[in-house]
Design a protein around this nucleic acid. Structure first.
Length: 319
DNA sequence: TCACATGATTGATC
DNA sequence: GATCAATCATGTGA
């Protein structure tokens, strides 16, 4: 029964699956190269179709053989009935035995087909095997968003969809990327400083241009542009970010300014001009506390050492 | 070939 | 259901 269900689900038995639908796993595991993926996808479908054909042809052969053998045995019994009495019960018993034997063979066929499908699936659809680095554009889009929303790098569903669209990847890939990025950034901020500066400066310039032109923000909205959301503010409430949120939440260019301020924080760190601001609660910078939460921190040591936080251990790099 | 980077998966937690 | 943290598996550059 389970074999039947699986063969049915895979489209081997039952009506043939057509169109672009196919197994959902294909879409879920697509990488940054849709073309490659579609090639592999069609290859997968071709192989599956081949398995399907073989399965059906073998099944047909078995059914035919079963029917022929049953007829043959029936004829034999009929001939024997001339020499000895054969009851209908005996004939039925023989037929059942034959069907049982062929059913076992059929089960083996189904089992081997299932195995073939499983091998095919693992070969073609295993995401880890098929991992592809995202395109440069996708990475840029994601990084831009991440570094311009460092205060709260948790994109909303809409933002994720927009990022996915821009980068040519799926929403779940965006979620994966942000999950990985948050953790890796937190673990080794020093390593990401240079990258952060590049995107921070870039975004700051962009945002300044946008504000100057009086346009709406051009980056995807974030659920916390004005509220803390799931973002944990573990510091006292006088942080710059909090003030910023209060100040800009009703502004039409709030999201843009929020991004700009996050970006400028990074620029300020790196130019060293931050030193004069340390101690002023208005200029505290968002950091990650030891509990792993994103928070504000003004500790100079975490700011003036772009080479890296000695306390941060990149255990991930040991992989 | 190796070390590192990175996308995906998994189990735990909230 | 979203996120975190650890881990896996593959890609990539030296």
């Amino acid at each position: 029964m389970r074999l039947d269900n699986m063969l049915l689900a895979e489209g081997v038995s039952g009506p043939e699956k057509r169109g672009r639908g196919g197994p959902s796993a294909v879409a879920a595991t697509s990488g940054g190269c849709p073309n490659d993926n579609s090639i592999e996808h069609s290859d997968y479908r071709a192989k599956l179709s081949q398995i399907r054909q073989i399965y059906h042809s073998e099944l047909e052969k078995y059914e035919q053989a079963c029917s022929e053998f049953t007829t043959h045995v029936m004829n034999l019994l009929r001939e024997q009935s001339r020499t000895r009495p054969i009851s209908p019960k005996e004939i039925e018993r023989m037929v059942n035995i034959i069907h049982g034997k062929f059913s076992t063979i059929q089960m083996q066929l189904k089992q081997s087909t299932c195995e073939a499908v499983m091998i095919l699936r693992s070969r073609f659809l295993d995401a880890r095997r098929k991992r592809r680095n995202f395109s440069k554009q996708a990475t840029e889009v994601l990084n831009e968003y991440f570094y311009s929303h460092l205060s709260n790098p948790y994109p909303s569903e809409e933002a994720k969809e927009e990022l996915a669209k821009k980068g040519g990847i799926t929403v779940s890939q965006v979620s994966n990327w942000f999950g990985n990025k948050r953790i890796r950034y937190k673990k080794n901020m020093g390593k990401f400083q240079e990258e952060a500066n590049i995107y921070a400066a870039k975004t700051a310039v962009d945002a300044t241009t946008v504000v100057a032109q009086g346009n709406q923000a051009n980056s995807p909205s974030t659920p916390s542009s004005g509220s803390s959301g799931s973002f944990k503010m573990t510091n006292s409430g006088d942080s710059f970010i909090n003030l910023q949120s209060l100040t800009y939440q009703s502004s039409p260019v709030g999201a843009s300014v929020q991004s700009q301020m996050d970006s400028l924080h990074h620029v300020i760190h790196q130019t060293g001009r931050y030193d004069s601001l340390v101690g002023n609660p208005l200029y505290s910078t968002q950091r990650i506390d030891t509990n792993g939460s994103w928070q504000d921190a003004t500790t100079p040591s975490s700011i003036t050492s772009p080479a890296g936080d000695p306390g941060s251990v990149n255990s991930d790099a040991s992989n």
